[in-house]
Design a protein around this nucleic acid. Structure first.
Lengths: 207, 207
DNA sequence: TAAATTGTTGGACGACGTTCAATATCGTAC
DNA sequence: GTACGATATTGAACGTCGTCCAACAATTTA
C-alpha cells in the first residue's frame, strides 16, 4: 500500500514519520532544482542523485514526476488555509467569501505560473474519486465548504448535490486558469469574477 | 510548416491530398490495432510496422500518440455534424437544440468510453488558442454556434463574449465527462441535463 | 530474539518522443 | 522535359519517463 496505516491509533509511528520526512526532503531538493534549471530541464535521476537516494526510492514516493508538483501545491494550500479561512470569516456572505477566496487563488496562481500547467495536467489524469476524500485536489473541498455555506444561508438555491456543484465550479475554475495560461496579457482575477457570476446566475439570468 | 499551403486557390494539390491520405491510413491501421489489443497495449512502433512506414514517418503525422485519437474524434464529429445540424434545425428553440446535441454527444461518448480519457487528457495539454480556430476541439465551435443562436433569439442574455461562454460550457462538459468516466453506473445523459441547467440558470436561480 | 512488514537499492527493460543527415518524391518554373 | 526547391520518408541514435524485480536493510510486532 502506498500510504501505510499508523500502527497505533494516536501516535503515528516512526516509520510513517520518516516516510513523510523523506518525501518532504525529496520534494524540497526537487524544487530547488526546478527553481534553478526549470521544471522540464530537471530529470528524475538528477533529483534522486541530488537527494542521494536511488531512482527507485524517488519513484516509490512520487510515482510520476508531476506528483512532486502536487505535493507542493497541496502543502501550500493546506498551509495557507487556516489563515485564509480566518480572513474569510470576517466577510458577511458566503458568496463574498467565495469571491475573496478566488482572488487569493488568482494571486497564488500568478506566482506559480510556470509549473501550473503541468500540475493541472497531472490532476486531470487522476480519477476524481481516488482513495477517499483526502487525496482529492483540496480546492474542491474548499469550494464544497463555501458552497455549502451559501446553501445554508439561502444564497444558493440549487437542488443539485453539494459535491456536484463543487466539481462543476472546480472545472470552471480549471477552464478559466487554462485559458489564462494561454493568453498572455489577461487578468486572472477578473476572469474569476466573470466565472463566479456565471456559476451563480447562469447565462440566462434575468437581472 | 506542418500544414503546407495549397498551391492553387481552389485545388488542394496532390501533395496535401496524399498527406491526408497517409494520415488517414495511419490512423486507420492504428485503430484496427487499438480495437484488437487496446489503446495502451499498442506501441507506436507496432503501428508504424503495421502500416509499413518508419517510426519517424508516423511521428511526422502524429507527434504524440494521443493525436491519433484526436484525429479519430475530430473526423467523427466533422462527419456527423451535417446530419446532426439538420436534425437540430427542426427543434424550435436554441436551448432545446443545445440539449439535443448534448444527448447525441452522450451517446457517442458512451460508445468510445475506453479511449475517451486519453483523448481528453491530450486535449487539455494543447493550448486553447493554437493555430487559429481550425485546430480547436470542434466541440467548442458547436457550442459557440448554438449559444450564439440562443443569444440571437434572446434565450440567453449574458453579456459575456460568445467565445468565453462557449469555453466555459466546454469545460463544464469536460468536467461532466470526467466525472462520468470515473463513476461506473452513472448516466451521462442526465448529468449533461443537470450541467446545462446549471449553465443556463446558475446555482442561484430563482425558479 | 524471531518473524513479518516495509523501505531502499541498483540495474535492466520497454516505450515515448526528439533529432538529424541522407535519400526519395513531388510541385513549379523554365 | 529538365532542373530546382520544397516536402516526405527513412533509419538510427539518443534521452527521459516509468516499471519491474531480486537482494538487502530497517523497523515494528509477537
Amino acid at each position: 500500500m502506498f500510504f501505510p496505516m499508523p500502527t497505533s491509533a494516536d501516535t503515528e509511528g516512526r516509520r510513517a514519520r520518516k516516510r513523510r520526512q523523506t518525501a518532504d526532503r525529496l520534494a524540497e531538493t526537487a524544487f530547488a532544482l526546478f527553481a534553478e534549471h526549470g521544471y522540464e530541464a530537471v530529470t528524475m535521476e538528477q533529483i534522486a542523485a541530488a537527494a542521494d537516494v536511488a531512482k527507485g526510492t524517488l519513484y516509490n514516493h512520487f510515482p510520476v514526476k508531476e506528483a512532486l508538483l502536487a505535493h507542493r501545491f497541496h502543502a501550500d494550500l493546506a498551509a495557507a488555509l487556516p489563515a485564509l479561512y480566518a480572513q474569510l470569516a470576517a466577510l458577511p456572505s458566503a458568496v463574498e467569501r467565495l469571491r475573496a477566496f478566488l482572488l487569493a487563488s488568482a494571486a497564488y496562481s500568478e506566482s506559480t505560473r510556470d509549473t501550473l500547467g503541468a500540475y493541472l495536467h497531472y490532476r486531470l489524469s487522476q480519477p476524481v474519486e481516488s482513495l477517499g476524500r483526502d487525496q482529492r485536489s483540496g480546492l474542491d473541498q474548499v469550494f464544497a465548504r463555501l458552497i455549502g455555506e451559501a446553501q445554508a444561508s439561502g444564497e444558493i438555491r440549487s437542488e443539485l448535490p453539494l459535491q456536484a456543484l463543487a466539481d462543476m465550479l472546480q472545472f470552471m475554475h480549471l477552464g478559466t486558469v487554462m485559458r489564462w495560461l494561454h493568453t498572455p496579457g489577461a487578468s486572472l482575477a477578473s476572469d474569476f469574477e466573470a466565472m463566479l457570476d456565471l456559476f451563480l446566475d447562469g447565462a440566462r439570468r434575468k437581472a
